[in-house]
Design a protein around this nucleic acid. Structure first.
Lengths: 139, 139
DNA sequence: TATTGTTATACTCTATAACTATA
DNA sequence: TATAGTTATAGAGTATAACAATA
């Protein structure tokens, strides 16, 4: 980590993000998923059942990218597609029982990751960082 | 920006980063460079002159990735390679006069971007965010 | 006409492996 | 033997364009 960069906001944001991703992927590897896939399971976990388009909108990717992402989770038996009962253009994407179990475990691990990531800070400062990021991340 | 994600640290970090990158690239586009290239110019701007390897270490990419990055900047006449006087395996990478001018302008723009990015926060909170990120980004 | 899922394709960013030339 | 630069290649991650089925 180059010292002459260390106070640039862009650098700090990028590397904070990198560090969180590393911790996340390491913590979730035993569950056989990445941080990205854990977030995807969270997005899919809706009582109403979502179309691929709706899931794509939630995580902010294109619907064309969604296909392969769902394929991966389906190959691991974490989610399943079924036809939408009222609109036959749509798939309903849902967690499988295995997906629900995995998501539950992933949530615990993710909380641990957040704690580890914020470990250099006091509890107050950790909460403060979250609030400040919220103000600044939501355009 | 999905509400059900908005308090996850991973989500906040990712989107703070995305927003900064967007602001940055938009502000630097009139100079014909990206935020990434502006950071690269900053890394290259060393009075001693750096090898490609040293620049790569500074920005945290592999030396094989460095080749194309330098090629791009060289094509824009922002940097130039010259043989290292003492070690003929190495290139010395340096800013051209045009590169120095562009870097100077890019610095002004980047400061404006930081101000715009932090606009939702008070000056105190802006400074606080920087300090907290520093604690958390440098492993 | 518009939307959903899909495929093909391409572009960015980055890394690994292997080569050349030096040291 | 090891290092610096280079090239070829490959793998993420993502987007655009075009198509079929359906609305």
């Amino acid at each position: 980590m180059p010292a002459f960069f260390a106070d640039r906001l862009g650098y700090l944001l990028k590397h904070a993000n990198l560090r969180f991703t590393e911790l996340s992927d390491a913590a979730l590897a035993p569950l056989g998923i990445t941080g990205r896939q854990s977030a995807l399971l969270t997005a899919i976990d809706d009582p109403d059942g979502l179309s691929q388009q709706e899931v794509a909108d939630r995580v902010g990717v294109d619907r064309t990218s969604m296909v392969a992402l769902i394929d991966e989770l389906a190959a691991k038996d974490l989610v399943a597609r079924r036809p939408h009962p009222a609109d036959r253009r749509k798939n309903v994407v849902e967690l499988t029982p295995n997906g629900r179990t995995t998501l539950r475990k992933a949530r615990v691990r993710t909380e641990e990751v957040e704690r580890a990531f914020l470990a250099p800070l006091s509890a107050t400062d950790g909460q403060r960082l979250r609030v400040l990021l919220q103000a600044v991340a939501g355009q």
